[in-house]
Design a protein around this nucleic acid. Structure first.
Length: 582
RNA sequence: CGGGGAGUGGCGCAGCCUGGUAGCGCACCUGACUGGGGGUCAGGAGGUCGCAGGUUCAAAUCCUGUCUCCCCGACCA
């Protein structure tokens, strides 16, 4: 590709709404362009990167035995109603109607479609196991797109789905995808950690996310400093700091004027927050659409984890209660009590509550609390479960002596054991060897392509620009021709070198423009091809071209002009080898 | 959805407070010089100031409404 013919330009200054370094560089380099909030066009250079990521994913999926398909973006809404996910996805689902007023959705994911497809084309246990995948555009009407390519409303995803006859089969399919994912991220130059995760709207029993750790991440990850336990904060378990065992003391009302928060209360009574019970109210939406008021109780030193609470209740949505609703349900904000709580309110207690005696809790009237509140003796909850948020400093649930830390990250991929979440409601079965119907068990596996691009830039850049991993760089070589318009010999030689490299299977971006050296070198740094070759009168007279690696690992070196193609291939191979999975 | 910020040539910004018919840098076009880290000079093209309404002799500027974008949070695969 000749730069003189390149569509688009580099920018000296990044557009003002680019917040992260990576996003700014993608815009400055002319890799992507924003059309509207959360919707981006890929320009030629950016699209080459995306296609290389696709290619790597295809190779690894195929190697893992998965078969590529291509499913429709546009889908009948009935399919989403059947599994109850129309309700569950809510506003995230882009919906439209055709000319006959038939309801449709733009696919945010494809479990329903693939499951129906599988059902229509599989009838025997002999057809299993099978893993299907596609690379397809997804549409999700996100409440708030952010961070350039990090969270968008239209994006390319590789989604794969496995169908197996039993748990052992699912385990094998899942493992194969898990290994393939590690290989994919390694080959793309994006370091990830696998963490335990909540399954969210996809459903199923157990999932793991591949997280790229970065300060700009939107997920909080909890990691043990002693063992390899790592989990999304939504899911993370932890060992609760133990309470002092002591005899239950008599219940005692106390006056606590103005102490409406746990911090106020603990200060007012001069006790640790762990000696109090914290009450938090929510409105939950059941899967049948009914709204239920929820009264969650955690020990005062802990916070409610809304995801865990949703899972404990088995509800599809949860939001904090409005002040008016709190009052309407007979609850006194700041002084609510689980003792004699209003009827119709679902009470959920955290695991920390039964094991912590003599807590201070609300009295359900203003300016008053109760001392020595004890679970079981004074009140009970409809549900006792792990509904608390793991915090830095908590003890690890998987090892002795480990302490949990937190970090930020971006979810690059997510693998789920779906089990029968879709095959059951969609009545999918195949005939088993014994002639009886068997319901297949499913897994699903997703990777966000744009996020790989975003993470790769975030991970591989400096203040001058991008330094693409060789595996996904738009071109292998940035050939800089200096003074081509002044020295005919050099121009001819540069053209020849360009052809030689291309003929040798090397992808070359050739800067044949008439700009000054500074402009060209700065563009080369910004655009980030892994290998830079400089052709100039000076080099030409010496019979050399100058080679420099973008990652700064070694100084520029002159190489013999005659060996250029061979040397470049050697360097290229070396760079690819460094990205080879172990 | 709550809070905050911003919309002025392709990009970055000034002008707005105190109304008088739009300016700077980069990029772009022409020419000359220059030529190994965004070079210099000269000459150009390009914007009805997000949109609508109002106030006024006169609105980028004041008022009202509205749309869009970004950030924090809520939410989220």
């Amino acid at each position: 590709m000749r730069m003189s013919r390149r569509f688009g330009h580099t920018l000296r200054e990044a557009p003002g709404d680019a917040e992260t370094a990576g996003h700014a560089l993608l815009l400055r380099g002319g890799f992507i362009d924003q059309l509207m909030s959360g919707v981006y066009s890929y320009l030629p250079l950016g699209w080459r990167v995306e296609r290389k990521v696709e290619h790597i994913i295809r190779e690894e999926m195929d190697a893992a035995g998965a078969q590529e398909v291509h499913l429709p973006v546009i889908q009948p809404i009935e399919l989403w109603e059947k599994t109850g996910r129309k309700q569950m996805m809510g506003d995230v689902l882009f919906q439209l109607t055709d000319r006959r007023e038939r309801g449709m959705a733009l696919g945010p994911t494809h479990e329903e479609v693939i499951t129906q497809l599988f059902d229509r084309h599989s009838s025997s246990y002999r057809d299993l196991p099978v893993t299907l995948y596609q690379i397809q555009t997804k549409f999700r009407d996100e409440a708030r797109p952010r961070g350039g390519l990090v969270r968008v409303r239209e994006f390319t995803m590789k989604d794969a789905y496995s169908f197996d006859l039993d748990d052992a089969g699912l385990d094998a399919s899942y493992e194969a995808m898990f290994r393939a994912y590690h290989r994919i991220f390694t080959r793309c130059g994006v370091p990830v950690v696998a963490v335990e995760a909540d399954s969210g709207a996809i459903g199923g029993k157990g999932s793991q996310e591949f997280i790229f750790l970065t300060e700009i991440g939107e997920d909080t990850i909890v990691m043990c400093d002693a063992c390899d336990y790592a989990a999304n904060a939504e899911k993370a378990e932890f060992v609760r700091p133990p309470a002092e065992p002591e005899e239950a003391q008599p219940l005692e009302p106390i006056s606590t004027p103005g102490a409406t928060t746990i911090e106020d209360l603990a200060r007012f009574l001069d006790i640790p927050t762990a000696r109090t019970a914290k009450a938090v109210f929510f409105m939950a939406t059941r899967k049948d659409g009914r709204h239920v008021p929820v009264f969650a109780v955690v020990r005062g030193d802990l916070d409610v984890n809304e995801i865990k609470l949703m899972n404990a209740l088995g509800v599809s949505d949860l939001r904090p209660m409005l002040d008016a609703e709190v009052a309407a349900h007979g609850l006194v904000a700041g002084y609510a009590s689980p003792i004699d709580a209003p009827r119709g309110v679902e009470i959920v207690a955290d695991l920390s509550i039964p094991s912590s005696p003599n807590l201070v809790a609300g009295a359900n009237r203003a300016d008053a609390h109760l001392r020595n509140v004890n679970y079981e003796r004074d009140w009970t909850a409809g549900t006792v479960a792990d509904i608390a948020l793991a915090q830095p400093g908590h003890r690890c649930p998987r090892c002795e002596g480990g302490t949990l830390q937190t970090g930020r990250g971006i979810e690059m991929g997510h693998v789920f054991r779906l089990n029968y979440t879709y095959t059951d409601p969609m009545d999918v079965s195949v005939l088993g060897a014994d002639g009886k119907p068997v319901t297949p068990t499913m897994g699903c596996y997703g990777i966000g392509l744009g996020r790989i691009v975003a993470a790769a830039v975030e991970q591989h850049h400096d203040d001058k620009g991008v330094a693409w991993p060789a595996s996904i760089a738009p071109y292998d070589v940035h050939l800089v021709g200096l003074g081509l318009d002044r020295d005919e010999d050099v121009r001819v030689d540069a053209d020849r070198l360009y052809d030689e490299l291309t003929a040798a299977g090397i992808e070359v971006l050739f800067d044949d423009r008439g700009d000054s050296p500074g402009v060209k070198f700065n563009d080369a740094d910004l655009l980030g091809m892994p290998i830079r070759l400089t052709v100039s009168s000076r080099n030409h007279k010496a019979g050399v071209v100058e080679l420099q690696l973008r990652d700064g690992g070694r100084p520029a070196e002159p190489i013999a002009r005659a060996d250029a193609a061979a040397r470049v291939r050697a360097f290229r191979d070396e760079l690819f080898d460094a990205l080879r999975p172990a």
